[in-house]
Design a protein around this nucleic acid. Structure first.
Lengths: 219, 219
DNA sequence: TGTACATCAGTGAACGCGCGTTCACTGATGTAC
DNA sequence: TGTACATCAGTGAACGCGCGTTCACTGATGTAC
């Protein structure tokens, strides 16, 4: 459940948790997620989590090293789920009207996922940009699947053309970055006088253009 | 210097700071910025700042209410500077090859600004998405100038066309969001196997397409 | 089916550091005459 | 140009809470026979 494969998942003191222990651990994770939705990251405390989970601080340290530790575990869960997003891309049509529909599907799927995991993803993003390798790794794990899938489509559409356009991975990464930012700042737009639905439409178009690569003027 | 216009800038106890006081205040701001580059946001403490500034905690509270208070002041400085970015847009050509050059100018100017203020902007971003009104306000202040300028260009290029494309502000906002994200995760790409220069090229294209609005298939 | 033992799981209570915050005071700067 | 007084500026030292963290212990669960 944590990382790759069948790592046995041991408690801090080396014991292997059973049903009950796993349930407690799980409760701690859930409460962390919930708290993150209402508490600023800076103010998230071990004691708050255990209070919310109806257990004691000592229990916390049986399963996690510290706050960052539990956040990493939360991130791992979310990231695992996020890798599914690649499914919104591979094997869909990208030319013509059908391509626009595919773009819509991608944007909507992405927005939905982000809405459901705002708080967690926010923290992952912060810690990534702050240079924490573990969180950056998780972020890459999550977005790389999508990016690669998108890049594959772009490569195919370029079809060995003479000018061959941009590097597909870079373009895919740029598009994914756009999705990430806008999904994360959804509330920000509504505070402006911009209807988010219009932003969504813009995202769709940019994805479509990014994938299909309209002509550029000679320079 | 803080907010709008000639607010007299008083110390916490109501006194008006003179030369010396302002210098100290300024030193505290600078040290905060420096620390932010090396310390995770969560670990930034008042005592660290005052130690770095070669002064005492008591002094800190003469000028700022708390950590968030000084961060807001830092943000205000940066934002003030960031509003200049709008100058990269207005009155430039956006059609044809010249348009691509304008897009390049915008992207490069943006990247440069972001590079110089990474840490601060990171925190502004976090606190914005966490729902802090004051930081969100600053963020909007900074990006709105750019977004409006871009939107104006888009509107002009649409030139009252029949289909009239997307809402210009939404498209502009989407483009700005893309710039923000990619500028902030620059290091992330280099950790991948993507050359950032290729990402830059993708950004340029997306900006160009977003502004000029290539044809979409009928749907 | 029952008893005993091993291990899992949870926690009360305390310890102690770190940090935010303040107070009462000293020193620096400016200005009035 | 000098002295006195007002205000600005800075701080040492302490207080005390909050929080991270741990220990020694009790209770729960599982399993061997």
């Amino acid at each position: 459940m944590t990382s790759d494969g069948a790592a046995p998942l041991r408690a801090v003191d080396g014991r292997v948790p059973g049903r009950r222990g796993l349930a407690t651990r799980h409760r701690l994770l859930e409460c962390t997620i919930d708290l993150l939705a209402t508490t600023p990251y800076r103010d998230l405390k071990v004691t708050d989590i255990t209070r919310a989970a109806g257990t004691s601080p000592a229990t916390f340290y049986q399963y996690f090293v510290d706050i960052e530790g539990i956040l990493l575990a939360v991130a791992e869960q979310t990231v695992e789920e996020g890798r599914q997003l690649a499914g919104l891309i591979a094997g869909r049509p990208w030319k013509g009207a059908a391509g626009v529909s595919s773009a819509e599907g991608l944007v909507d799927g992405f927005l939905e996922f982000w809405r459901d995991h705002r708080s967690t993803l926010r923290v992952v993003d912060l810690l990534s940009t702050e240079g924490d390798k573990r969180f950056r790794h998780q972020r890459v794990l999550m977005l790389n699947a999508m990016t690669k899938a998108l890049a594959a489509e772009i490569t195919e559409l370029q079809g060995g053309a003479k000018d061959s356009g941009v590097d597909p991975m870079a373009m895919a990464g740029a598009l994914v970055g756009m999705l990430v930012n806008l999904a994360g700042h959804r509330a920000g737009f509504e505070a402006w006088d911009i209807r988010f639905d219009d932003v969504r439409e813009s995202m769709v178009r940019l994805v479509y253009w990014g994938v299909t690569g309209p002509k550029l003027p000679r320079r």
